[in-house]
Nucleic acid binder design. Structure first.
Lengths: 205, 205
DNA sequence: TTGTTTTCCTAATACCGTTAGGCGGATAAT
DNA sequence: ATTATCCGCCTAACGGTATTAGGAAAACAA
């Protein structure tokens, strides 16, 4: 009873993972919005309608990818900052670099998170939650740096935070637009460090 | 002969403009990649195949919009900078602000220019040319500021220029992603000025 | 062995972009 | 004025898409 249910769930989860993997591959090849359920079905050896047993619509599939992507990005930023528990500025730097590097390594998810590539698709609140957590994390770290007098108080204002996210998002956006496959030379991704420096120089005490 | 040919050309150009206008309206409503030739045809009172008398494909329509958008953006940046013939820094600031304001006012074209919203579409060299001219213009203005000792020499390096475009593109990208209709409060667009300030502070002498 | 649930299927609907080919009217040539 | 040419738009058709409806077969539970 227990083990059988588990076996079924394992199999089902494996199928879901297979579908998502195929979808990501095809989105990397044909563009995020260019992915078709028919192509996904072909790749996993099914007919298109059978996919509806796993996702209630094409947008639901995008939503699952959005959620997994947002969680992965959040974890990457979290882990990078955790390496500098006693230096808030270093944590900010490392977090921004991790943000960009993760985006380069996961260009499909990064497009989904940073742009609006799919007409009609908007992430569900649940899928969006990890993205909000990244913002919260950023806010905490900036406030910590301010309280430790490493940054001016202006850094923790709404505009200060928006500027930080804007600068980092700018690097990612340029990278995705000019090297969408992520297999390039990182001509834009290497700007992460100097871009954050611009922001830090303005707000550092 | 002359006048008749002209009459025909005028009528044809008017039809082309009507088609492009309808396409932009529908892209604003349904997303850039969500525009359908059927809907465009309905709006201009034709059947879908008739559009092929004016554009050889859907991507050709995107290409025309890209070209017109790039030219409009270039002209806006050009005009804004021309108001400050004797102050290269002010010209840079005004150009960046014009870039962002034009993008907010033309969100559809801005998405086409800054992102890759349409799978399979890449602008033709002809359509891309005005975009290259914006880059050239930026390079000239930065070099002018450097030669006048208003900016450090590092501003005119490849990285310095990429950082400038990245910062400005970041503002536009955030604006488009968070307020795609462009009818919002300009929460992100107002960051244009402080964002450019970050860059200027770093490179100013 | 019977009943239930899960998984996948085929068939069908309503769209889409695009091509082929034709019809009628406006223009040009005689 | 009549004929020929061209232009603008049409219908029909092809292969593709997302999605729904409903059924068959297999895996599981009783």
């Amino acid at each position: 009873m227990e083990t059988v249910q588990d076996r079924r769930k394992v199999r089902r989860d494996a199928t879901i993972a297979e579908i998502l993997g195929a979808a990501v591959e095809l989105m990397a090849r044909d563009g995020v919005a260019g992915m078709s359920l028919s192509a996904v079905a072909r790749r996993v050896g099914m007919r298109p309608p059978s996919l509806y047993g796993y996702f209630s619509s094409k947008n639901a599939l995008y939503d699952a990818l959005f959620e997994r992507g947002a969680a992965g990005l959040r974890d990457a930023v979290l882990a990078a900052g955790a390496k500098h528990p006693d230096d808030a500025l270093a944590a900010l730097r490392a977090g921004a670099r991790a943000f960009v590097e993760w985006s380069v390594g996961n260009p499909v998810a990064a497009q989904l998170l940073n742009w609006r590539p799919v007409p009609g698709f908007e992430p569900s609140p649940q899928a969006f939650k990890p993205s909000l957590e990244v913002v919260s994390l950023l806010r905490e770290r900036i406030q910590l740096a301010v309280s430790r007098k490493q940054l001016r108080a202006a850094a923790a204002t709404e505009d200060g935070m928006l500027l930080f996210t804007t600068v980092v998002a700018g690097v990612v956006s340029q990278q995705l637009a000019n090297d969408p496959t992520g297999r390039g030379d990182g001509r834009y991704a290497r700007l992460a460090e100097p871009a954050v420096t611009l922001w830090l120089e303005h707000y550092v005490t």
